[in-house]
Structure formats: C-alpha cells, structure tokens
Amino acid sequence: MTDWTAGDMPRLDGKTVVVTGANSGLGYEGTRAFAAKGAAVVMACRSVERGETAADEIRANAGGEVDGNLDVRECDLASLDSVATFADDLAADYDAIDVLCNNAGVMAIPRSETEDGFETQFGVNHLGHFALTGRLFSLLRDAEGVDGVGPARSAAGSRTESGVARVVTQSSGAHEQGEMDFSDLNWEESYGKWKAYGRSKLSNLLFAYELQHRIDAANREEDAALDVRSVACHPGYSDTNLQMRTAAESGNPLMKVGMKAANALLGQDAAIGVEPMLYAATVDVDGGAYIEPGGLMNMRGHPTVGRSNDASYDRADANRLWEYSTEATGVEYPI
C-alpha cells in the first residue's frame, strides 16, 4: 500500500476535468480535489440544482474561492439525448478536455429502464458512459493532457509517455460477481439487482481496457498519434450516498438501518475513497491500469496499482460488448 493522498496531485492550472455525478459522494470529493489544484471542473450532474448547491458548498468550504472554476451542467446518463446535448454544448464552449472521470452510477436498485429502454444499472453505469466518452473523444484527443507525477506500474499494457489526456472509469470490487450474458444484457428474462450491478461494473472494466487496446492499435498505425490513456479504478468500501439510495429504493426500512450501520463501521471516508480516481487521473500510470485501495482486502486504504479479475480481461467479451454498445447507443468512436 502506498501513502499517496490527494495532496500529492500536481498542479492542474489550465486543465479541464469532467466529472460525472459530481454533486455528491466520490464525484463531489473528486471535484473538490481537482479544483483545489487549479483545474476547471465541469460538473456533469443529473440535477443542475443539486450540482449548483454542491458547487456553492465547495466554494464556501474553500473560504469562498477555489483555485479552479466550477461549471455545472446537466447530464442525465439515463438519457442518450441528454448525453448528446451535454457533449455538443461542451464542444461549443471548450477546445479540449484533459481528464474525463466516468464516475456516476446507481447500485442494486429494483429493475427499471432508462429513457431509451435499457435496464437502468447497465444503461447508466455502462452505456451512458460509453456514449459520453465517445462523444467527447475528439475533445480528449485535442488536449495537452496531464503530466503524470511519480512512477507506477500496471498489470496490463506497456509504458506510455506522460502528458496525455485521461479517461478514468470507476468500477467496483463487485465486478468480481459480474457475469456477461449477451443473450439478456438488459435482464428481460430474469433480474437480480446485485447481479445486475456486478455485470454493469464488469462492463465498465471491459470497456476501459478495450478502449485502451483500440487506442494502442490506432497508435501502431502510421501517422497515428492518439495521446489519450484509459485507466480503471475502484474506491473500495466508501461511505457515500450510493448505499443509502440503494436502501431507499429497496422499500425495506431495515436495509436503510443496515446500510447506515455498515457505512459507519466499515466504510472509509469518501475523501479517501476517491483517491484511486485521482491517482488514475494524475499519476504516471500505464493505459489499461487498474487502481484500487491498497489496504485490507483492497477495500480500504490509499491507492495502488492492482489487477481486476480474469473475466475483465476477456478480449472476446470486450469486443462483443463494444459492438453491442456502439449499436445500442449509435455512438461511433473516431479511432
């Protein structure tokens, strides 16, 4: 385990960072940390009102000012139209994006569907971020990127130079319980809320690694120079409102009590839980790296480079998921 903290991040003056789900939990803490280092942070939130409240709170806790700008914008990952509008508006106002943090998500909720008819956990956690990343990829490609600090090694991929844009995709240790079933990706035949969550988090990893494979393949082509790096992470067991939303949507008051007790006894503060995401965004890690807490059972502690389960590195599943996601969202990557 390292002793790396958010204080070890480099200055990010002049950099633009996009964080989904920025108004609460890990997204809030990530936004606060990036802004404290001078980055302009685009807070991509389902509710602009809640986003503005969070931005005001960050400014107030920083003595009325933060080093970087906070730009709150609506982005509902359960709506492909909302994702497209967000991306188009961002492209109109920004020349480049240095870091994209695919952070927002829902966990273990009763079955429902997104605006476009996808099972909500798969639709929000994976497909929404797949579409968002693809629509913002040109802005990432045009960025100067972040000069990563400190040496780090990953379990996948070769070393690349620092000074590249980053796509950081937030997964979960729950990916280990996920299984890909391409005959029923949207859980129309049967549904288990925790199984669906595990699949969505496994999908996050398959996407993150496949994106890096495609970037590497493009860079092997003559005259190609895609200075973009895809990295995955997970926060361990962090005390956020994600668990409380799960409990609230279960309709079981005892679950709310249980989740609250578990967060208090087992959960680490969200300011520590977000460190793997911050590490992935600013440390000189390889494309395809997996950043996780380095403490007890990789569920607590400061970040380190680890390895996700074997299923997450299955290239056949990754390609199949990519093809499905492209068709389902209508988003083609300019790679």
Results as ranks from 00 to 15, higher is better:
6 A>P: 01
18 V>N: 04
22 A>P: 13
29 E>K: 08
29 E>F: 11
40 A>Y: 02
41 V>W: 07
44 A>S: 10
45 C>A: 09
52 E>W: 00
55 A>H: 05
57 E>T: 14
60 A>Y: 01
63 G>A: 00
67 D>L: 14
75 C>L: 12
78 A>S: 15
81 D>P: 02
82 S>N: 09
84 A>F: 07
87 A>E: 11
88 D>N: 12
91 A>L: 06
93 D>L: 07
94 Y>A: 02
106 V>W: 05
112 S>V: 02
120 T>W: 03
121 Q>A: 03
122 F>E: 10
123 G>N: 05
126 H>C: 02
127 L>G: 12
133 T>S: 08
138 S>V: 08
140 L>R: 09
153 R>C: 04
153 R>Q: 14
155 A>G: 15
159 R>Q: 13
164 V>M: 09
167 V>Y: 04
168 V>I: 12
171 S>A: 15
176 E>L: 07
181 D>G: 03
182 F>M: 03
182 F>K: 12
186 N>W: 02
186 N>Y: 04
187 W>N: 08
190 S>F: 04
191 Y>K: 06
194 W>A: 09
196 A>Q: 06
203 S>A: 15
204 N>I: 00
219 N>W: 11
225 A>C: 04
228 V>F: 00
237 Y>P: 01
239 D>E: 11
241 N>G: 14
242 L>Q: 11
252 N>D: 15
253 P>H: 01
255 M>D: 03
259 M>Q: 09
261 A>N: 04
261 A>M: 14
262 A>H: 08
264 A>R: 07
267 G>T: 04
269 D>I: 01
269 D>R: 06
270 A>K: 02
276 P>H: 07
281 A>N: 13
282 T>Y: 06
284 D>A: 12
286 D>Y: 10
289 A>L: 00
290 Y>A: 06
293 P>A: 01
294 G>V: 12
300 R>S: 03
305 V>A: 10
307 R>M: 15
308 S>E: 11
312 S>W: 13
313 Y>W: 07
314 D>N: 15
324 Y>T: 07
